[in-house]
């Protein structure tokens, strides 16, 4: 299967492992990730204002590129996926926004592309059962806490990945890899996000709630799909390690290089 891939700025810099293990895992699973040519940063957060046009053009260009190739547009960073999917939804549902965006781009675009997070690609296109078949090194009952944060699930009317309050997608992947998913109360609450820059205390309070909640529930490790979540949880002293879900995936598939 060939898909369009939007890595995003952080995956080329501070979150190289997220990118690397996504690519390695994709290879094992017969997915070809075709990187969008000349992609530009998504901007990190979706601006809900309907009259914000220029800030959404980078997403529209990536979407239009994927649509032209008739490929699914896949990202693995929670933030990129959230921005791109919400932008696509705005192109489909907000005529005024759509009209204004189309004044800036060469070829008309009306939200035709299909947008998926890498997790959804694994669940809906590959199938977690197929992923399980390719496991070489089971996680052997490792207790893994999935941290969803905000951006994968919300707003659920647009993201449509999973039940926003009782998600299972990452837990199901963990099970497929032989791990034991740990359900804990704060798995879909905010880590503080970009507030870390200006008000690190606020980010600390948010992040500690998440990591304490995961640790108390018996987790040995936390997985995330978001570089900023990982930063906040680690920076604020998580007792247990925080890794990208793709790292565990690559490990289970036997393609993680030893450090």
């Amino acid at each position: 299967m060939k898909v369009s891939y939007f890595p995003g700025c952080t995956l080329k810099t501070k979150a190289k492992q997220l990118d690397k293990y996504t690519r390695k895992s994709a290879e094992v699973l017969d997915i070809t990730l075709e990187e969008i040519e000349n992609w530009q940063c998504c901007g990190g957060v979706f601006t809900t204002a309907r009259d914000e046009i220029a800030t959404k053009l980078s997403s529209v260009r990536a979407l239009s590129e994927a649509a032209k190739k008739d490929q699914i547009l896949v990202s693995v960073c929670s933030a990129c996926h959230n921005v791109i999917k919400q932008t696509n939804n705005a192109m489909q549902t907000d005529d005024e926004f759509n009209f204004r965006v189309n004044q800036y781009i060469d070829e008309e675009y009306n939200g035709e592309a299909k947008v998926m997070h890498f997790l959804e690609l694994l669940r809906d296109e590959v199938g977690f059962d197929k992923v399980a078949e390719k496991v070489k090194k089971s996680l052997e009952g490792k207790k893994v806490a999935a941290y969803y944060g905000c951006l994968l699930l919300r707003p659920s009317s647009v993201m449509q990945m999973d039940d926003p309050e009782n998600p299972t997608i990452i837990e199901d992947l963990i099970s497929a890899l032989g791990g034991e998913p740990v359900i804990y109360p704060y798995r879909n609450e905010c880590c503080g996000g970009y507030i870390a820059l200006e008000n690190p205390e606020s980010a600390k309070a948010r992040s500690n709630k998440v990591t304490d909640s995961a640790a108390k529930s018996g987790a040995e490790i936390i997985v995330t799909a978001c570089p900023l979540c990982k930063y906040n949880l680690e920076k604020n002293g998580s007792e247990i390690p925080v890794v990208y879900f793709t790292e565990l995936l690559a490990e289970a598939l036997g393609v993680k290089e030893e450090n």
Partner: peptide, 13 residues
């Protein structure tokens, strides 16, 4: 360790 994502998000907001 601050990821680029934090900077671009804060600037956008």
């Amino acid at each position: 360790d601050m990821p680029q994502q934090a900077i671009v998000s804060a600037l956008r907001k």
